[in-house]
Amino acid sequence: MGCSRSNEFWRGFRATIPLVVGAIPFGIIFGALAVNSGLSVGAAAAMSAFVFAGSSQFIAAGLFGGGVGIAVIVLTTLVVNLRHSLYSVTLAPHMKHLPQHWLAPLAFWLTDESFLVVAERYRQPDASPYKHWFFLGSAVFMYVNWNLCTWIGILAGQTLPNPASWGLDFALIVTFIGMVAPTLRNRPVMASALAAGATAIALAGTPNRLGLIAAALIGVAAGMLAARIGGTAATSINVETEMERG
């Protein structure tokens, strides 16, 4: 079981279904908000096709609507997406044997959602040589869904006014809460999240969302400091992979 390529592909697809449920409203609201914040239809669609990082797209659309400069938006995107480098570090040992024509597309398709299920798959002890097909199944599903939902949102946003009032923007928040809350079980991670959250609230009014960047850096520093004080620096790199899926 689980040994053929297509078997792994469809397992990855199925494991990603609950995460797609969360991404659907989020993608729709992104498309709607993007065109309502002044981005052209082409730019909104291109962002989902070429950037493919939901939270940063969401924030970028908001900043663009607020007249923020391109350089600041790109810098914010970098900081918001920096967490993907941790996902790469976590997955890399399992993917050493893969050629670049596998690594580059899978890296492009690496999202919070796919990381969650793929890291779980790699942790399973069976010796299936096709676990990257599981990754592919998860990633393609997320990508197709994200782009479809963006288009639905773009079309809806052009006909229905004021998408922010629908309340779907909470979908992003609740997805992130569902990812981060279960990891708050050791002191350094709690310190990191608390420091970042408190800083972000305190700096909520700062222009250009620079408070977000400052909060992220302070959160990382607080986590490292807490780990040093508590002597638990060796806690494993499994942030947000311990989640069960529904």
Binding site: I173, V180, S192, L194, A200, L212, G219, A222, V239
Partner: peptide, 12 residues
């Protein structure tokens, strides 16, 4: 290790 909790908390 602390980037995901820090960035996600800073957004949430």
């Amino acid at each position: 290790k602390f980037i995901p909790p820090a960035v996600l908390a800073a957004i949430i």
